[in-house]
């Protein structure tokens, strides 16, 4: 797992350099240099009183949620609790009808669109693994690699040695080194999950939103994922939405239970599991639901 550490170390160094070069942040030398995200005065992600409804159905109902910098948070809840919709709101895919969503204390996410939010450092893994099937594994990682996303720069971009090294590291981490030149479409379901996690790592996000990372994984793969996510936490903030209670128990420090679009309970896994309201919602431990 040391590979990840070095990846992350390098990433923050690079990030610092890159920040200095950003033309749109001329006066930002006042701010901490590591990231544009200002977390000195509070949490990295802050949702207040967020509501959204689709055709009269309230998917999210006055949701309040706070994620601290470096925290690993698990979010559980029955189907239709609003977990995916919440991620849609954070990543800019869905606009809430009301409420506030802040990334650090500076960025109002409701004013930004998906690419802007992604470039601020929020990475997202989908529920259904989504990789670029017509590209090979290393190309998938290369595209996800943090860098200048503008058209002209993208057209002229070359993969330098440093980038190649980063790709190699992530391939190592995700166990895909032997598959690097295979088309992503040919990978098995579990491998696709890993590739998508690898793409997240390439993005070097400050906040990772991970939707059901272990679906379709074997037991050892699950362990590896758990290990990886716990490692990431501390340096990056991780929000995991998962149905697999065993997996949640193995990684969770803080658990949030969503129900009908708002927070039902929050606390450690044991606290939450003992909460009578949670037990009622899950109807006596019917935890393993169909995705």
């Amino acid at each position: 797992m040391s590979a990840i550490d070095s990846t992350l170390d390098k990433s923050s160094r690079l990030g610092r350099l890159r920040e200095l070069a950003r033309p749109d942040r001329v006066f930002d030398f006042m701010a901490p240099a590591q990231s544009p995200v200002d977390v000195r005065h509070g949490p990295i992600l802050y949702l207040e009183d967020v509501s959204v409804s689709f055709d009269g159905f309230r998917a999210i109902d006055r949701l309040n949620l706070t994620i601290d910098d470096g925290e690993l948070r698990c979010i559980i809840g029955p189907n239709g609790a609003g977990k995916t919709t919440m991620m849609d709101i954070i990543t800019g895919k869905t606009r809430p009808d009301q409420g506030q969503v802040w990334f650090g204390s500076r960025h109002n996410l409701l004013t930004l669109d998906e690419p802007q939010i992604a470039n601020l450092g929020i990475g997202r893994k989908f529920q259904k693994p989504t990789v670029f099937e017509a590209l090979d594994v290393s190309e998938n990682l290369e595209l996800a690699m943090a860098g200048d996303r503008r058209i002209w720069k993208t057209l002229l971009a070359r993969l330098d040695r440093e980038g190649q090294a980063r790709i190699d590291e992530v391939l190592e981490t995700t166990g895909l080194t032997s598959e690097r030149y295979r088309l992503a479409g040919v990978l098995s379901h579990g491998q696709k999950q890993w590739l998508e996690i690898g793409m997240l790592l390439m993005q070097r996000p400050r906040l990772l939103l991970v939707d059901e990372p272990v679906a379709g994984m074997t037991e050892p793969e699950m362990h590896r994922t758990a290990e990886l996510l716990t490692r990431l936490a501390g340096k990056q903030s991780v929000v995991v939405v998962e149905h697999d209670m065993g997996f949640v128990r193995s990684i969770a420090r803080q658990v949030t239970v969503l129900h009908q679009g708002s927070v039902l309970a929050e606390g450690t896994m044991d606290e939450v599991a003992g909460d009578p309201r949670v037990i009622e919602v899950y109807l006596g431990g019917d935890e393993e639901e169909a995705a």
Binding site: E114, L143, L155, A157, M199
Partner: peptide, 21 residues
Amino acid sequence: SRLGRVSMATRDAEARVRFIG
């Protein structure tokens, strides 16, 4: 070019491309 690969990626999974920035 990388732009070409981004475009193929867009063809196959547009939302994903957006979410990686």
